[in-house]
Design a protein around this nucleic acid. Structure first.
Lengths: 225, 225
DNA sequence: GACTTGTATGCTGTATACAATATGGTGTCG
DNA sequence: CGACACCATATTGTATACAGCATACAAGTC
């Protein structure tokens, strides 16, 4: 029998499912408060309910869906309050991870920041939000790798997904909000590359706080408190 | 009609299982790196593998077990590195939650700190580690409730469980390490009650940092880097 | 007409059966 | 004697069957 299934996909259906659903939620194709029945998801992706249940547990962990016992699962609602919660946590943790990344002496991997910045600029020039965010996420992943703090990474990956929902929405409404952050991002990458933990942390905290403030009002207007 | 719906009470086997396993891991009855086969857990608690799998996902989320695809699940190893990771994250987040708790104006619930302090002292006087930690966890839960930040609470609850493994171990080795923290805890509770966010945050960060430093060497000696 | 009770249905939660894969031991061959 | 292939077994991963709760709606009662 000739192999027909991709080994990697077969290796972790729940994780793959979770990734696909994540993307759909972040990009807004699955709307807030939309019901997600297990059978619907199972049928849609051609698998049984078992891996779906596990995938939904993963999404619950990352705050993308909410679950009520014996009642079901819904795409997590968006609100200013939720937004505030995510961002207050992010300020603290992203600052920490930037510091720890700067303290790494893996100069090889730090060089990757250069290429990422080029890609970010290209994506921005093309006004390609999806691409921009995809590269941005890879940048975060690199920072997390450099920090080499698995616990911190675990916490942040969850927050990042929630944050991306808001950021993507904001970008669609007003693309220039992204430009705001590009220069600062470049400076942060420089500080990390240079090994300057103090300013990497301070600039990261400042950047995220600014993004938070700049989006806050629109989030309230759009999603309510 | 007085009876409200009690959503939490609706039997949730995975959550109950997770709680029991958590306790076994924290108290060291399930040893580090011990293999946890699904069938073993299922048989031990008289349930099938389905809820066990979900319980183990929950434990994985909280960093108490590690999982390798298709190979199995083990009680998470303890090490100085893991300890450092947990505590650097805790410093940032516990400080934040203390500040937000202080900013709450739920004076009724803040009064509960008094009773908790009494219980803490009693437990300490009796050298009852389990009781001490149980009350301490309730104190944290109260702080989290006051902060009313679900995202932050979600992140911290996971960290707290990991931290408790080390704290409980340290307590067994040397009970006076607990006395160290009682007075400071009292002062933090006071600051929160008084609504002084700045000092609640600063004192919390300082306390956790001190606990971290005081335990760090012993953790390395015992568990290795 | 409002409220309770009965009933149907859809969905979640759990158990069980089955498939796929990792592991360890045994034997064979170099 | 060591390396490697092969098979047996244990364990995870997935599918399916079934039980029980939640919701909506219909019927009956006051």
């Amino acid at each position: 029998m000739i192999l027909q299934r991709l080994p990697k996909l077969a290796a972790a259906i729940p994780e793959s499912l979770a990734e696909m659903l994540e993307e759909e939620i972040i990009l807004g194709r699955l709307k807030s408060e939309e019901r997600l029945t297990e059978e619907f998801v199972a049928e849609r992706y051609g698998v049984s309910r078992s891996p779906v249940r596990e995938a939904l547990r993963l999404l619950e962990r990352d705050g993308l869906v909410i679950r009520e016992a014996r009642r079901g699962i819904w795409v997590a609602p968006m609100s200013q309050r939720d937004f505030d919660e995510v961002y207050t946590c992010r300020i603290a943790l992203e600052g920490l991870v930037a510091r720890q990344a700067a303290e790494s002496n893996d100069t090889e991997r730090k060089k990757e920041f250069r290429g990422l910045l080029v890609e970010l600029k290209e994506a921005q020039a093309r006004n390609d939000a999806r691409q921009f965010f995809a590269v941005d996420v890879r940048g975060s992943a690199l920072v997390y790798d450099l920090a080499a703090n698995r616990t911190l990474t675990r916490l942040l990956q969850g927050l990042e997904k929630q944050a991306l929902r808001y950021r993507f929405h904001a970008y669609e409404q007003d693309p220039k909000i992204v430009k705001l952050s590009l220069d600062d991002t470049a400076r942060i990458y420089d500080a990390i590359t240079a090994g300057d933990g103090d300013s990497a942390q301070a600039m990261t905290e400042k950047l995220i706080r600014e993004i938070w403030q700049s989006m806050r009002e629109k989030v309230r207007d759009y999603f309510g408190q």
